[in-house]
Design a protein around this nucleic acid. Structure first.
Lengths: 350, 350
DNA sequence: TTGAAAGCGCTACCAC
DNA sequence: GTGGTAGCGCTTTCAA
């Protein structure tokens, strides 16, 4: 702080970033006063405030929130994590967007990541986010059980599960009633006269995928239709695999008259296969989860819609109420999906 | 550290999170030794390492990267920011995903945000990210000029612009040749016999939107077609506004025989309008920017494709080479779009 | 191989 | 109003 130290006065001499010390030296006040000005605290005379503000501008000073948070008693970092399945998929992307909007209102930044159904990645990324001391976490889990989170939950880390419920630990969750949605889809097809209905689904290890297959079976059983295992095609991860599977179904049999595609990209693959087979208007299709432009397909795609905006908003609300100190018992919000008939699901059997 | 202090030994007594101090006390070693173990540094005897590891587990200790980074000389935080236009839109979402993948390889987390064309939000969020000391920044700017970034760039913050070039400052960028793409689209329509071609575009204040309109005009001029200002509909922000505009065009004239929709959701709006008018197979349409399922529309949508994965990978590569210390002059990567004919763009004029 | 002391940039607490 | 001192949780430096 001696005037012989040029670094403290000359901005050009400072190699790295300016600190509060530099600002204090340049404006001739104490560190604490600079802190007051920077944090817009009361109790600083206008003239001093002005002098400090000018020094801040002159030195290109920017606050270091990490140093600030380290010392603050609140323990908050103003950051939350959102670990979803695939940020490029419209479901995860819309969810992230909704969470972001709520976070912005709470002056909080969002660290986002894709899990791609990789359990190890989930554990690594959660640990990383904890190291970064996020104030809370949104998790669309890739693991089947989340005991590994017990310590964090006990320590008070707010975690909201989305799309899938927690297993082995108790935490907030916002999910869709997959059983109901799958039943709706299947009943809808049955109602239009179909009895040979195929289902395409993801890995049965994935909770939502298993529930959708179960809902499909329940609806068949309720209608007195014997389910044919050959019409159940699971373990499908991509649109391309669904496309291939549908082709196989029609080439090798047993050819269905209707298809329930239990995930949005599987519905896309189904539509591609049917188009190439010239069956777009012959075979009925209902998809699970709406997506942009589903109404513009040929025929327009009938879907079971999950209201993603509502889910995201609910997740955000829950998360930030927890961060604000809400310690009520974990809440399990279940959202009812709705069937949106658009054409593809109303095609009668041949 | 006195044995009379129970907090240092009993995990239950510690209210908040355990620190290295607690671990050191429990395992009977110095702080520095714990640091060595936690950071996997060499020079710790196996038995001591073991003792520390057990204490870490017993206390549920997790490293605090903020405190760590504060003291470290590297100055890195292992975080980058990605400010895009709308994380729920397939273009931004795919971009984020590509950036995330590159970041993960560099053990870096991504703070993501949507700008929604709001210039003020951009400035606020950039400042926030700087306060958070991100190692680098990907920016799809909402501002028309970025002089406000000059200080940060001079201070060495790596910034890569995406989709739009920097103005008023010099920085890396990865963009698509919008002029070329718009010319391709328009020429394609002209080549199929159209002379009354409408263009739908976003706010002309947005660089990419203006360029696309310019490319459209250039193509018309090159073909000796006098452009009709009434066929140029700009300032369209949403699919709904495009839908409305197309309706107006056909109700009040001048009815075009072809439409160049210069953004993906404007193409969606166009498709909706044409469908409701029963003109889907009468009016030719070319969109700018591909999106999932464009091939499944009726008719399949002809588009000028920007290779988003390539753009994202290029952005990531650039950003992390800068973070790694690459100080070569700013690079401007321009990616050529390609026209993908699918049906809608090959409809002849009536 | 291990540890003590200093300090990263900032805020809390208390004195003036 | 303003400032000094301690210390957040960790790494650095240097000594043992």
């Amino acid at each position: 702080m001696s005037p012989a130290d040029p670094r403290a006065v000359d901005p050009r001499a400072s190699v790295g970033r300016a600190t509060m010390r530099d600002v204090a030296a340049l404006s001739g006040v104490s560190l604490k006063t600079v802190s007051r000005v920077v944090n817009h605290e009361a109790g600083v005379s206008p003239e001093v405030r002005d002098r400090v503000t000018r020094a801040v501008a002159q030195l290109d000073y920017t606050h270091n929130v990490h140093a600030s948070n380290l010392r603050r008693t609140s323990g908050r970092t103003g950051t939350v994590g959102a670990l979803l399945q695939d940020l490029s998929n419209s479901f995860s992307a819309s969810l992230l967007r909704s969470i972001e909007d709520v976070a912005r209102d709470a002056s909080t930044a969002v660290l986002a990541g894709s899990l791609d159904e990789e359990a190890d990645r989930e554990r690594v990324l959660v640990k990383d986010l904890v190291s970064r001391r996020v104030d809370g976490l949104v998790l669309m889990p890739a693991t089947s059980r989340q005991e590994y989170l017990a310590g964090e939950l006990r320590a008070g880390l707010p975690v909201v599960f989305v799309d899938r419920t927690p297993h082995g630990v108790d935490a907030d969750s916002v999910t869709v009633d997959n059983l109901l949605g799958a039943r709706q889809a299947t009943q809808h097809l049955i109602g239009h006269g179909h009895r040979r209905i195929a289902v395409l689904s993801d890995l049965v290890e994935i909770e939502t995928a298993a529930q959708r297959v179960r809902g499909y079976r329940e609806a068949l059983a309720a209608a007195g239709i014997t389910s044919d295992p050959a019409l159940e095609r699971t373990g499908l991860r991509t649109a391309a695999s669904a496309e291939h599977e549908v082709r196989t179904l029609f080439r090798e049999g047993p050819a269905p008259t209707a298809i329930f595609a239990a995930r949005n990209d599987l519905a896309a693959g189904t539509a591609r296969a049917l188009r190439s087979l010239g069956l777009s208007h012959e075979v009925a299709v209902v998809g699970f989860d709406d997506f942009p432009l589903a109404d513009l397909l040929d025929p327009p795609l009938t879907v079971v819609r999950q209201n993603v905006t509502q889910i995201g908003a609910e997740v955000g609300r829950l998360l930030f109420s927890r961060i604000a100190g809400d310690t009520a018992p974990p809440r399990r919000v279940v959202i009812e999906p709705t069937l949106v008939p658009r054409g593809s699901g109303e095609i009668p059997p041949r």
